[in-house]
Simulated assay, not measured.
Amino acid sequence: MADLPLRLSPREDNPPFHHLIADACRAAGIAPPPGPPFTTLQETLTDIGVADPSWTVFYEVAGLPDVPRVAVRPLAGASVTTSLAVLPGTPPPAVRHLLHALTRVA
């Protein structure tokens, strides 16, 4: 995959994600050439299935897509820091429940 173009949205659209992928590529010892920009998930995956060979990385939002001619494989070990913004003070029960659930997943 090191020689195949990597489709990412422009760095300014999502700097932390761009940094995460760049670091992962460096750690793997690869520097894939930039491909066409990632536009929407469906459009990008469709292009991957029918256009010149390329690849992309995305984070799951609403389930994994099923696109003909495209293999979707989960990545192990890649993570990005996420934050929760709430009112200051003691978290209400719903926020405590959410925080507890998230720490069990991590």
Rank of each mutant, 00 (worst) to 15 (best):
I30L: 15
T39P: 06
F17A: 14
E60R: 15
W55S: 06
L20I: 04
G89E: 08
V50N: 05
A71P: 02
D13F: 01
P65I: 10
T56E: 08
H97T: 15
R73W: 06
R7I: 02
T44N: 00
N14A: 01
R73F: 04
I48D: 04
D47Y: 07
P74D: 13
V95S: 10
T90I: 12
S83G: 08
S79P: 00
P37V: 07
T81W: 12
L99A: 10
V67K: 08
P15R: 03
F38T: 03
L98W: 01
S54E: 01
T40C: 03
S54Y: 00
P93M: 08
S54C: 09
D47N: 11
I48Y: 06
A85H: 13
H100I: 08
T82M: 15
A78T: 05
A76M: 05
P88K: 01
A94S: 09
A101D: 15
A24H: 07
F38G: 06
A27V: 00
R69M: 00
T46C: 12
A106E: 13
H97M: 11
H19Y: 05
P65T: 14
P32H: 02
Q42G: 14
A51M: 06
A24T: 01
P91S: 05
V95G: 12
L87T: 04
D47Q: 10
H100S: 13
A27H: 01
R96E: 14
P37R: 02
V80R: 13
H97V: 05
H18S: 15
A78Y: 10
F17P: 04
L20Q: 06
P37F: 06
A85S: 13
P5L: 10
V80W: 02
